[in-house]
Design a protein around this nucleic acid. Structure first.
Lengths: 260, 260
DNA sequence: GCCTTGATGTCGCGT
DNA sequence: ACGCGACGTCAAGGC
């Protein structure tokens, strides 16, 4: 990273700097007293208060209150950002097209503003045991679900979606397997039922539907029973042990140990 | 807001300041070169790069890359945060219980660090035209959907959900109305069909199903036609004009005008 | 572009 | 504390 600038600033100074920083596509951090108006997919108004505002080089804008994970207002990306002085206040207007959304941040005070240019972040983000890996492990070890189960196809495309795993049991009956990496709710059961019905109709033979997840909600279990679908709970720990090999750059053993 | 501190900092200085700031529950902003390990509901590893890190007074932690709306790593809130020097690197470890999650941020450089204390933000966040208000406006003005429509009940509980509006048309036929504030997809059609079937079964008479939204996807429209359900598009602008009264602090007319 | 699914979703509300 | 549904969900991937 090459440069930075700081402005413990009057509104005038802040306006000048912000306008330039936006034009230069810097990463901008502002702490100030502001109110926020949003009109777009919804509409909202936030009264005056102290907030942290972030403007990224790609036009993303985040307005954070002092507490909580989520920004209170935001713009995932914006086509353009305008900085101006309006009636004694500093207005930062961020506009997004498609869908048309306008975010206005009205500053009455800028306690602090700083910007950065030339941040270098080319690193890869590795995620372990995501939906993909979860499926791969199950597909490689169908015996954890049922003896004699044979995987025919994964990510099988069907009308309007994908079947996670398409398998055949020891009796030769097709089994459609729907996976949920974390928790299966009744939504997952509905989805599975849709696929089972579709296949039953197309194949003209009985098809089993199996919902697989580390945890299954009671409602999901009841609905599955009613619809003649099966549920299998699988232990995440057991699956982790079946993981083929540590991928490059896997989290250190120490961190995993710390979790236990 | 009462105080601020700045540290364009060596790792040692940064460690001291960060530890104190965390203890004092300040809002902290750090820009530095770091790698990140996360283990919890998922596991991830992020290689070294320049990032913006935010630590809030309530223990929320956000790690932002230079682009995009979403943090690459985060902790919605953490029970405790530990700052230490480990093998020449500055480690910020944030731990959350229930679910157990550990986020490790390893700094090799701290370009910039600043903190704030005593931010005051008590303002109310008001959202307009949320799902509730959308329903209320439609329910108060059923004529925008059809002449002679009479609303019987809103938020009517049924098996496994709620009917947004239960109405009767000029012929005395029950009409089940499903609302989507933004866009109706085929999921909404499926939901509506479920309610219509349920009612038809229970009442033993023909029941109309009506899907109402500012926009309806093509797929949803096709599915609705196939299932004998109706779609009504309503203009958000028109609804806004039907809004009973401006609520305190409503977005200024100018911003709404700007949207048109 | 629209559509679909997954997410460390987060959040709020009800039981 | 869990379950459940909504969200300005966001973001990725297929068509």
């Amino acid at each position: 990273m090459r440069r930075e600038q700081v402005v413990p600033a009057s509104l005038d100074e802040a306006a000048d700097s912000l306008a330039r920083w936006v034009a230069e596509k810097r990463l901008i951090v502002v702490v100030g007293r502001c109110s926020v108006d949003y009109v777009g997919r919804s509409s909202s108004k936030l009264g005056e208060g102290d907030r942290l505002i972030i403007v990224k080089p790609d036009g993303s804008v985040l307005v954070h209150r002092p507490r909580g994970y989520s920004p209170v207002n935001w713009q995932p990306d914006s086509q353009y950002i305008n900085v101006s002085l309006e009636g004694g206040r500093l207005l930062v207007r961020s506009v997004r097209e498609r869908p048309r959304e306008v975010l206005d941040i009205w500053f009455t005070k800028v306690y602090y503003a700083v910007s950065f240019q030339g941040m270098v972040d080319e690193a890869r983000f590795y995620e372990y045991m995501d939906e993909h890996e979860f499926r791969d492990i199950i597909a490689s070890h169908p015996e954890v679900l049922e003896e004699g189960l044979r995987v025919v196809e994964t990510e099988k495309p069907v009308k309007g979606g994908y079947i996670d795993i398409y398998a055949v049991d020891s009796q030769g009956t097709p089994v459609i397997i729907e996976l949920k990496r974390v928790r299966a709710t009744k939504e997952a059961v509905v989805q599975l039922k849709r696929y089972v019905d579709y296949f039953q109709e197309h194949l003209g033979v009985r098809v089993r539907g199996m919902l697989v997840a580390p945890s299954v909600t009671r409602k999901a279990y009841e609905l599955a029973s009613k619809l003649g679908l099966e549920c299998r709970q699988v232990s995440l720990d057991k699956l982790l042990k079946l993981r083929p090999k540590a991928r490059p750059g896997a989290p250190s053993r120490s961190l995993f140990d710390y979790m236990e």
